[in-house]
Design a protein around this nucleic acid. Structure first.
Lengths: 150, 150
DNA sequence: TTGGGGCTTCCCAGCATGGGAGGGTCAAGC
DNA sequence: GCTTGACCCTCCCATGCTGGGAAGCCCCAA
């Protein structure tokens, strides 16, 4: 099948199909004599794997690892689990970061009367004189910075 | 003060200070006769504002809006609050997305015995035959796709 | 034969950030 | 005065993932 049909069947855009091939995530598709890419069932299966992994937030490099394990008959499920759990840790880190930001912002918005007057604790906090949060221990940067400022 | 000192005082890297100036987020710093940027107290205050907004996850465009409001004596706090709350909605959307991914992955990892054998429900799910999640209603793509697949 | 849709490659864009090359400037110390 | 090292300048490139678009070829149906 052609690339358009492959895109339809995998949910990956034509652009991305070519990109994944270019960066070596998937092996180059066969070509017709005129240069059209031709996708076979096993290519589609691989691409669906990629698509699902992407939907789970895996980066291309991690997907490459997973694809390698998928093809490796001698893999141990422990390896796969390790990759998955490492990714969970990463996602949770990002989630905590979002939580911090949401918490701070909601707190600020809650204290803002939101009427026609210009006084606003949100801008007041952002524009406060004090030093900015230290760039160091990451995950609590926002919280710490604003705990001090608020 | 020079750009290096400004970077130290604001927690924004030298690279970013130049970038923010280039894209017009902040007005160009004064220059010495030899071309060095010179930062004044009010520049530092502005940059700290930018830094804090960035720490709250605002994009540069949104920060530009907030800076505009900050400088606008005639603003209403309602406008500011609206920007903040819209951003909260966005952050929460992203958090839901992360939650979906974390939930699915933890579920898969939980069902993976993680030993020396190759059998693995994680890979099994990623490589399942069925159609891939429809790209449409976004926030539940992952969940739906895997609910069907698992 | 012609038209339209699909395919090809190549280049560009975005976000926010960092790296590095190649070269000028400044201040301190000899 | 001269050297040295830290600092600054601009310019280009890279990242990760995605999309847009141009120029040109291919294929099928009418």
């Amino acid at each position: 099948m052609n690339i358009g049909e492959a895109a339809r069947q995998t949910g990956i855009s034509v652009k991305m199909l070519r990109y994944y091939e270019e960066i070596g995530l998937v092996r180059p598709a066969l070509r017709t004599y005129s240069g059209y890419r031709v996708y076979q069932d096993k290519d589609i299966a691989t691409l669906r794997f990629v698509r699902r992994a992407r939907d789970l937030g895996f980066q291309v490099k991690e997907i490459a690892t997973l694809l390698g394990l998928w093809c490796d008959q001698a893999r141990s499920s422990a390896e796969v689990k390790a990759v998955a759990l490492a990714h969970v840790v990463d996602l949770e880190e990002r989630r905590r970061h979002l939580d911090d930001m949401i918490g701070t912002l909601r707190h600020l918005a809650h204290n803002c009367h939101g009427d026609a007057r210009p006084d606003c604790p949100i801008l007041g906090t952002l524009g406060a004189d004090g030093p900015v949060a230290p760039p160091a221990p990451r995950r609590s940067v926002v919280k710490a910075g604003f705990a001090a400022a608020v």
